[in-house]
């Protein structure tokens, strides 16, 4: 099961509006580059939300009462990237962005 999303700065800005943060690493390209990144960063929980949709797709209504989501953010996702999240049959989660692995974890149900 796979989901692909093209990342844009307006998407990051929209998530930032509901997230209510003011961390310039998400909005100020020059600051993000100064910190050593390719550009501004997609919020980690925004990445997680992409994976959560895969859990809902796989497990249906059980996802709302027994869903378990584990995400480890291991790489940056920047505007212009193609973000791809994939969940295997046994619930292992891997996401790549710009061709590199950026998030790993699992999407499962509690026993």
């Amino acid at each position: 099961m796979k989901r692909q999303i093209e990342i844009t700065q307006p998407m990051i800005d929209g998530y930032g509006r509901i997230n209510g943060d003011n961390d310039i690493i998400h909005y100020d390209h020059d600051y993000a580059v100064q910190r050593g990144f390719r550009g501004t960063l997609l919020h980690g929980p925004h990445m997680t939300a992409f994976a959560a949709d895969l859990g809902a797709k796989r497990y249906g209504k059980d996802w709302l009462t027994r869903g378990k989501l584990h995400t480890k953010w291991i790489g940056p996702v920047c505007p212009g990237d193609a973000f791809v999240a994939e969940v295997t049959e046994n619930g292992e989660l891997t996401a790549t962005s710009g061709g590199k692995t950026v998030m790993v974890g699992s999407v499962t149900l509690a026993g």
């Binding site: 961390d23 690493i25 910190r35 980690g44 929980p45 996802w63 989501l69 584990h70 953010w73």
Partner: peptide
Amino acid sequence: GIVMAELEMNW
């Protein structure tokens, strides 16, 4: 500059 590293969440 806080950067999120890991999250486990149950609903």
